Simulated scan of single mutants.
Amino acid sequence: MVRESFAIGSVRVRAGAARDVELPITRLVTGGDVSLPVRVVHGREDGPTVWVSGAIHGDEVIGVEVIRELIATLQPKEFRGTLVAVPVVNVLGFMAGDRYLPDRRDLNRSFPGSPRGSLASRIAHLFMTEVVAKCEVGVDLHTAADKRANLPQIRADLDDPRTRALAEAFGAPVMVHARLRDGSLRQAALDVGAKVLLYEAGEALRFDDEPIATGVVGIRRVLAFLGMIDPDPDDEPGPTLESRSTGWVRARGTGILKLETKLGDVVAAGDRLGGLSDTFGRRVRLVRADRSGIVVGLTRAPIVNAGDALVHIASVEPADH
């Protein structure tokens, strides 16, 4: 029996095929149309329906490359289930190299949206209607904010057994139990019954080989866990640390920052992480860890003011948790 085709927008994708779809968003003042680009991989055999999305924040470009490399590895005739890949959700922000939409709204605070609201609200509603509503699992790809870098990590509701199993299957170096934010895609998707992983890695406006490779391999592990592809026999994921509490070490003064720690370092409370100096190189004060854990984020800005976030440390749960 031939599997039913997959409907999205105004088209249907037949079983065993991949197809690019343009979902209309708006029209520019110059008359050009702006659309949401989607690649649907509709497997020949039955299975789950999963989405992957990138660039909800337009300057977070790593997810675009993760999805490009991911879909290049998939063969529709050998695929089970359906993948809906949306490499760029915030199309206008992405084209401008800007985190936000032209009206300065944060798209990831605009879900579930409305068909007659602001531009952000309309894009959110389109994404919820055409993508999330058709899927049971989603992986949303992010990077650190401007002038920061993140260690590859999964953020998710680790108290939900199904979501936790998906996070463990992804196999990132760290998985963080993360609270929900009102208006976020993760919150809106959970409200309609989808299980969501949020992947954080790398820096804004920059491709970085390690976070990209970790993202591609991690999503493929999730697809294998769901039975959509065969597992890679050569893939041997390392241990995943669990964190239920994170916090930023903040500058206690103003100066030029020189960090002596890097992403992935395991630190103890009181460890020296770096120092602040004046413009002549005189040390103003040291930067020390305020908790024990693993460094999952840090600033790339050399000039800091009192109160600025410098190093993000995730407290690590015991291995037998």
Results as ranks from 00 to 15, higher is better:
residue 114 S to K: 15
residue 124 A to D: 11
residue 106 D to E: 01
residue 98 D to E: 13
residue 123 I to W: 00
residue 164 R to V: 02
residue 155 R to P: 05
residue 139 V to K: 04
residue 111 F to W: 02
residue 160 D to L: 04
residue 97 G to R: 08
residue 176 V to R: 10
residue 133 A to W: 11
residue 93 G to C: 08
residue 110 S to K: 10
residue 87 P to H: 00
residue 156 A to Y: 08
residue 113 G to Q: 10
residue 95 M to T: 03
residue 178 A to K: 14
residue 109 R to V: 02
residue 151 L to S: 06
residue 162 R to P: 06
residue 90 N to L: 07
residue 144 A to N: 11
residue 136 E to C: 08
residue 94 F to E: 06
residue 113 G to T: 04
residue 158 L to W: 06
residue 91 V to C: 03
residue 125 H to G: 02
residue 139 V to H: 00
residue 161 P to D: 09
residue 127 F to N: 14
residue 90 N to I: 07
residue 90 N to K: 04
residue 100 Y to E: 02
residue 169 A to D: 10
residue 140 D to V: 11
residue 149 A to Q: 15
residue 141 L to V: 12
residue 170 F to M: 07
residue 125 H to I: 04
residue 135 C to H: 02
residue 139 V to L: 15
residue 173 P to I: 06
residue 118 S to I: 00
residue 136 E to T: 10
residue 141 L to H: 01
residue 177 H to K: 14
residue 138 G to E: 11
residue 95 M to E: 11
residue 139 V to P: 00
residue 178 A to M: 13
residue 109 R to A: 05
residue 107 L to C: 08
residue 131 V to K: 02
residue 157 D to E: 13
residue 116 R to D: 09
residue 154 I to P: 01
residue 142 H to K: 11
residue 163 T to W: 03
residue 153 Q to N: 07
residue 167 A to N: 13
residue 100 Y to N: 03
residue 128 M to E: 11
residue 103 D to L: 01
residue 172 A to F: 15
residue 118 S to C: 07
residue 104 R to V: 00
residue 89 V to S: 04
residue 141 L to N: 01
residue 141 L to R: 05
residue 152 P to V: 04
residue 163 T to R: 12
residue 164 R to W: 01
residue 161 P to G: 03
residue 108 N to S: 08
residue 104 R to C: 01
residue 126 L to N: 07
residue 136 E to R: 14
residue 96 A to S: 10
residue 91 V to I: 12
residue 116 R to K: 12
residue 154 I to Q: 06
residue 122 R to I: 01
residue 150 N to A: 02
residue 138 G to Y: 11
residue 150 N to T: 08
